[in-house]
């Protein structure tokens, strides 16, 4: 692609300092304590998967990182600077509403391009938008509106938008949660491919309730327990480099990790039952 060098946005992966740090963060919604005393650091270029059941506050954690919510206690730093509100330094992909429905896919992207690189002409912005759409496999869809395309295509466009925004940190809130299994697999592979490519690679925090997804995508998996949400385990994922989905899911290490995580969940639930607190999921339990 002729425009590959333009997709880098000046971001360079080789720097490996700390991108995000969460220090003693607690967060309450109304009177309910959602997150309790979270400590977490995310290195530059790292892919961290935050895994937890419904109601563990993983979405709240992501919103805090994005600056869309403010912590009750503790502080959140991005490259050493306190996070005081949303910023284009931290792009977000939501579950199914990252795009403005009144704009076509191209215009949804040009809004971001306009922010990332000021002073470009309209034709140039449109051309860059098309390059990003190509990158996520949406060739020729520029003039379609979000309601005209499938959920999978919307999420592709949402990823393209955050890439176009050029944010060094990408926060993803169950971005594939609403997709059918086939599209989910396709988009997971697309995301991995984009991460590995040096021109688009960046720091990612990816929230999910799917154990396989977390282990397949993440360099490191943070497991959250419920009521209140807190870190119950941190797992360094040992599968390096090119991962084949099939080999990975067959491997003993993978099965072992999966079982360990399930055991952690059960411990957490039993601990709560003993403590007498009610376990309340939104129709899903892991």
């Amino acid at each position: 692609m002729s425009g590959t060098n333009r997709l880098t946005n000046g971001y360079d992966k080789k720097d490996s300092g700390i991108a995000l740090s969460i220090e003693h963060v607690s967060f309450s919604y109304d009177t309910a304590l959602v997150l309790k005393d979270i400590d977490l650091t995310v290195a530059e270029g790292e892919f961290v998967a935050v895994l937890g059941p419904s109601g563990c506050g993983k979405t709240s954690l992501l919103r805090l990182l994005a600056g869309l919510e403010k912590p009750g206690n503790g502080k959140i730093l991005h490259q050493g600077n306190p996070v005081s509100g949303p910023d284009i330094l931290r792009g977000v992909v939501f579950q199914d509403y990252s795009l403005f429905p009144w704009l076509n896919l191209q215009d949804n992207l040009t809004i971001a391009i306009n922010k990332a690189r000021k002073g470009l002409g309209r034709a140039e912005r449109n051309k860059i938008a098309e390059e990003y759409l190509d990158l996520v496999g949406l060739q020729g869809m520029a003039s379609k509106h979000p309601y005209e395309v499938s959920g999978g295509m919307r999420q592709r466009a949402a990823i393209a938008r955050s890439l176009a925004l050029g944010s060094p940190v990408l926060l993803m809130d169950e971005p594939f949660g609403a997709l059918d299994p086939v599209n989910r697999v396709r988009l997971q592979d697309l995301l991995l491919q984009l991460c590995r490519s040096s021109s688009t690679g960046r720091t990612i925090v990816f929230v999910t309730h799917d154990v396989e997804e977390a282990l397949y995508l993440g360099d490191r998996v943070i497991v959250l327990g419920t009521t209140p949400g807190r870190v119950i385990a941190e797992i360094n994922v040992p599968f390096e480099g090119q991962r084949s989905r099939y080999d990975l899911f067959q491997s003993k290490e993978f099965r072992k990790l999966e079982e360990e995580i399930s055991a952690l969940y059960h411990e957490d639930i039993e601990r709560q039952l003993e403590a007498g607190s009610v376990v309340f999921g939104e129709g899903e339990l892991i």
């Binding site: 994005a66 977000v92 939501f94 809004i111 922010k115």
Partner: peptide
């Protein structure tokens, strides 16, 4: 809220938020 979130993430200023999000 979802439109407000997106406007924040895209770094919209007040006027841009009114014109590009609140109006439509």
């Amino acid at each position: 809220l979802r439109y407000r979130d997106n406007a924040g993430i895209l770094g919209f200023g007040r006027f841009e938020y009114m014109r590009r999000v609140v109006f439509p």
